[in-house]
């Protein structure tokens, strides 16, 4: 497929509260210290929504805003791809508890927040963005699915596209079956054409060779535990601002190679 161009980037994860800090960790200028991730509701949300916003909305919106800002683009203009393995899994747990109780009447808000695209819905309302938006899931391959969709959407529409990959920690008892311990989010703004401010040219292809791993055991642990953190090998290459090629974990028999041309 044709090259795409990276215009903006954002990261939020344990020990990596933003891209500048993540860049230091990924360049091994400072050690990864797993610290609780502080998520805040962006002030573009209406006050009532800000109070009610769960981790999934806070994380995805913060990621999206930071990536758009980094690209110098108005979020209202950006087609977007939300990709997450479990969406708002706290809301899902609360809903399942109610449905297993004696009084099964769920709250209307719980229900409309249960759709996988709820964070995308809040994003479009808060940013006034009427551009195309999709919400994906591919279990552990969710990051790869989102990156492919964002790149093909940018190429197909001839317009930049924002990928927001995010996962939040699973609550008990679902944690027993899906042990994602920390929130992690990655935002990338991808353009179909090079611009004056493009960070890098990205060449994506599907390969059957194994995915790259992180040399640092702490980062490798995050990569394995959180689907959105499957982006770490690419983020490290971008942090080092060097050309190179990484293979990101995607699906069985189908991995996603990304060649970075600086």
């Amino acid at each position: 497929m044709n090259s795409v161009y990276l215009e903006g980037i954002s990261v939020i994860g344990p020990g990596m509260p933003d891209w500048p800090m993540a860049r230091q960790v990924l360049r091994q200028e400072s050690a990864l210290e797993i610290a609780p991730v502080t998520l805040t509701a962006p002030d573009i949300l209406p006050a009532t929504e800000r109070r009610r916003a769960g981790a999934a909305t806070k994380l995805s919106m913060s990621i999206g805003l930071a990536a758009a800002r980094d690209a110098g683009l108005d979020p209202a203009t950006l087609a977007n791809v939300f990709t997450s393995t479990g969406g708002d899994c706290d809301n899902c747990h609360a809903l399942l508890e109610t449905l297993a109780s004696d009084d099964r009447m769920v709250s209307p808000t719980r229900f409309h927040n249960s759709v996988h695209n709820a964070p995308a819905g809040y994003w479009s309302i808060a940013t006034h963005c009427m551009a195309p938006s999709t919400s994906l899931c591919a279990y552990d391959a969710t990051l790869g699915a989102g990156l492919l969709e964002a790149a093909t959407m940018a190429l197909g529409n001839g317009q930049p596209c924002l990928m927001i990959a995010f996962d939040t920690a699973y609550p008990k008892p679902l944690f027993q079956l899906r042990p994602i311990p920390y929130p992690f989010g990655v935002g990338l703004v991808i353009s179909p054409v090079p611009t004056a401010t493009s960070r890098a040219e990205l060449k994506l292809s599907l390969v059957s060779t194994p995915a790259d791993v992180m040399a640092d055991t702490g980062l490798e642990s995050l990569r394995q535990q959180i689907p959105a953190a499957r982006a770490l090998p690419l983020l490290q290459l971008l942090a080092r601002q060097t050309a190179g090629r990484v293979v990101l974990d995607y699906l069985e028999g189908c991995q996603l190679a990304v060649e970075v041309v600086q």
Binding site: V115, H116, S133, C137, T142
Partner: peptide, 11 residues
């Protein structure tokens, strides 16, 4: 199959 796959979940 060994090609790309995903689920779109937009209600």
């Amino acid at each position: 199959l060994s090609g790309p796959a995903s689920v779109v979940s937009t209600a």
